[in-house]
């Protein structure tokens, strides 16, 4: 069995703020998951869930309070590990006095790439991200999408084994997004691991093999996307030639819900069910002499699954939070920011 590229176990991070009245904010509360080599792993969660804190811990930008985290078999933040990581931060800022070329030169050398090697690779790399003609242009003239592409290029410049991309498609047009997706698949084909954090769940759904859902600093789900989209939330939709009463009577065991009705047919949604239940239900309908106009499985989108999962969590936590001392975590406005907090660290 191959060892995981990223391994996080019972990871905790507590920020402390305020000089006199010290406030504790638990950004991560025992997060555990693994990322396997060569997979595209998506990290999901609402604002304030602890995603950025988790990424920064993996990169050593923020120090963990408890638990363990490793990247490529090395402790998170280890300089040898960072040699093999490419990172694209959210809302990154590339100094305005640089051009596309000098930015790659600068960040490449920060990653210990020799100047000659950078000059050899930079044209191709800019071409890959769609900035082939913009290498000599100062970045102050770049659009947000172009800056994202340049950020992606610098993250790939030193051929990292792991790419950690925070909102890589933010501000990028649909064609650019498609290009980035294509690039991600190419990286996957090359055996590289991509750790993706994005608010655009459709993007994640299109590229990720597995996802982890974080909420309030805890992992709510880890696994393949279809586990999330085809799990308990999967519905069956029957369009039957029968009136409403007859339809409900036949499907009473499955908790039917009438979705629509017209003069001849009634459309009903039933709760998730196994294949044997479906077979039995179809037999029952036919035995009752009801014609089946259509029958379809309603597969949820990732967004629906996410909202369903997080929505119920947040409802539960709101109830809990009303009695909890760290109720700051409820709302985005009280989300901890590392800039103005002091960490209770464990190095």
């Amino acid at each position: 069995m191959t060892s995981p590229v990223v391994s996080v176990s019972d990871l905790r991070k507590t920020y402390r703020s305020g000089l006199i009245r010290r406030r504790k904010i638990e950004a991560l509360q025992g997060v555990s998951f693994d990322v396997q080599p060569g997979e595209i792993f998506g990290l999901l969660g609402p604002n304030g869930a602890g995603k950025t804190t988790l990424i920064k811990i993996l990169l050593g930008i923020v120090k963990r309070t408890e638990g363990s985290a490793s990247v490529l078999g090395l402790p998170a933040g280890d300089r040898r590990g960072r040699m093999r990581i490419g990172y694209l931060p959210e809302n990154h800022r590339i100094p305005r006095h640089l051009t596309g070329f000098t930015a790659l030169d600068y960040y490449g050398q920060l990653s210990h790439v020799p100047g000659r090697e950078i000059r050899r690779k930079r044209d191709e790399l800019l071409e890959t991200v769609g900035l082939g003609k913009w290498g000599s242009t100062p970045v102050k003239s770049y659009s947000k999408g172009m800056l994202q592409r340049l950020g992606l290029a610098q993250a790939m410049l030193h051929d990292p084994d792991v790419l950690i991309l925070d909102e890589p498609t933010d501000g990028v047009d649909p064609i650019g997004r498609a290009d980035i997706r294509k690039t991600l698949f190419q990286l996957k084909e090359q055996g590289r691991t991509v750790f993706l954090n994005s608010h655009l769940l459709q993007e994640i759904e299109l590229v990720a093999d597995r996802v982890a859902v974080l909420n309030h600093g805890r992992v709510r789900h880890v696994g393949p996307i279809h586990d999330l989209t085809q799990g308990s939330s999967t519905r069956l939709i029957f369009e039957l030639v029968a009136d409403e009463a007859a339809t409900l009577a036949v499907l009473s065991d499955l908790g039917p819900q009438v979705a629509s009705r017209n003069a001849e047919t009634t459309t009903v949604t039933v709760a998730p069910c196994s294949q044997s239940e479906i077979d039995r239900t179809v037999d029952g309908i036919r035995q009752a002499g009801i014609s089946i106009v259509s029958m379809s499985r309603n597969r949820q989108t990732l967004e629906q699954a996410f909202l369903e999962l997080i929505g119920s969590e947040n409802l539960d936590s709101e109830n809990l939070d009303s009695e909890s001392p760290d109720s700051e975590m409820k709302s985005e406005s009280l989300t901890p920011g590392p800039a103005d907090t002091n960490a209770d660290d464990k190095n």
């Binding site: 920064k56 930008i61 931060p89 990154h92 920060l110 950020g151």
Partner: peptide, 11 residues
């Protein structure tokens, strides 16, 4: 934010 993250992610 965005500038220091990029720098500190480097080895």
């Amino acid at each position: 934010a965005g500038a220091i993250d990029l720098l500190l992610s480097k080895p």
